[in-house]
């Protein structure tokens, strides 16, 4: 088991190097270090010396991938790519263009992100599974049909409409929640209601339909037939047997997204003015702040790989027949 985890973690290294390569290549096709210096220094009265100095101070005066002036191994190591990405591997993200420490910013912003993403995930799971069970319970009645049609209809609406509609109705017309903003601590609750609600509602169509299919598949299995033959009530079959067995694929499917919850949602956060990592990323893209973009991409990859690992581990926990090699 431990050996397996170690090997998987080692396997992550080439992936992360690849990710960094792609980020660097894409970013520097678009921007030269000179551009970055200009953005940092502002538009008015920028001299060539100031740009050179900025590049030197921030370590952007080296060649990107190959340093012809250095000797030996340094040709490859004394480059922008190696110097900048090595520090990422020890989670030293450096400073953003505005001089703020990225690592500190990430640690601060991760909590608002989590405060939205986690309730959204949990409430979402509860709601979707309840709805799906409801539809399965009433299967082959008009309620099931109507439910499925409603799901498809809900699926066909762009998520943006839910956000716009939610802010308009709950925030503006009915005065029930603040339209946007955030406060730390317990006060956060009133700010989280709307984003979480929007997050849950926008997923209803697709997820309910998916879980319904999952449950129906389970219903056709032998053990359900056996249970029914024993004369168990429909509700008992559904809640005790079907739900219990279907939870395994549901939960293992959820595990993969858990680490990425920290990154937050790009759209929801910027619409609702939540100071999380999602809006941090969006702002960084808009401002072309490479240090932040690089850090967020790296972090995203790490968390994704972590999610994959957790998924594999959860399989073994759930099903002893699966063995990790």
């Amino acid at each position: 088991m431990t050996a397996y985890i170690v090997r998987r973690l080692l396997y992550a290294i080439p992936i992360l190097i690849g990710v960094n390569l792609i980020t660097f290549a894409l970013f520097f096709i678009v921007n030269t270090p000179d551009d970055m210096a200009r953005i940092h220094l502002g538009a008015k009265h920028v001299t060539a010396e100031a740009i050179e100095r900025w590049k030197r101070e921030h370590g952007y005066d080296k060649p990107l991938f190959y340093n012809g002036e250095a000797a030996g191994v340094a040709r490859l190591t004394d480059t922008l790519f190696v110097q900048k990405s090595l520090r990422l591997f020890v989670f030293d993200f450096g400073q953003a263009d505005d001089g703020r420490d990225i690592g500190r910013e990430i640690r601060e912003r991760m909590w608002p992100s989590l405060a939205i993403a986690l309730p959204t995930l949990l409430t979402g799971l509860a709601v979707y599974i309840s709805f799906a069970l409801l539809l399965v319970f009433f299967r082959a009645t008009y309620l099931d049909l109507a439910g499925v049609v409603l799901c498809v209809v809900l699926m066909s609406i762009s998520g943006l409409f839910y956000v716009i509609g939610g802010q308009y109705l709950l925030g503006k017309l009915w005065n029930l929640v603040p339209i946007s903003g955030y406060q730390p601590g317990l006060d956060a609750v009133k700010f989280l209601v709307l984003p979480v609600l929007v997050g849950v509602v926008s997923g209803i169509g697709e997820s309910t339909r998916f879980y319904r299919t999952l449950f129906l598949e389970e219903m056709h299995k032998d053990y359900v037939r056996t249970a029914r033959a024993k004369g168990l009530a429909e509700s008992v079959v559904l809640f005790r047997h079907v739900l219990g067995n279907a939870m395994i694929p549901i939960l293992t499917g959820v595990v993969v997204v858990i680490p990425r919850l920290f990154l937050g949602s790009l759209i929801v956060e910027s619409f609702f003015g939540i100071p999380g990592l999602g809006s941090y990323t969006i702002d960084a893209i808009a401002a072309q702040d490479f240090a932040i973009v690089r850090a967020m991409v790296f972090l995203g990859s790490v968390l994704y790989i972590l999610g994959l690992l957790l998924t594999d581990l959860s399989y073994t926990l759930v099903d002893p027949r699966v063995r990790l090699e």
């Binding site: 992936i15 690849g18 990710v19 980020t23 990154l263 990323t281 967020m296 995203g300 994704y304």
Partner: peptide, 13 residues
């Protein structure tokens, strides 16, 4: 390797 790498970069970026 290629698709895990690509997949692990957040799409919007």
């Amino acid at each position: 390797y290629v698709y895990t790498t690509l997949n692990s970069i957040p799409g919007v970026l």
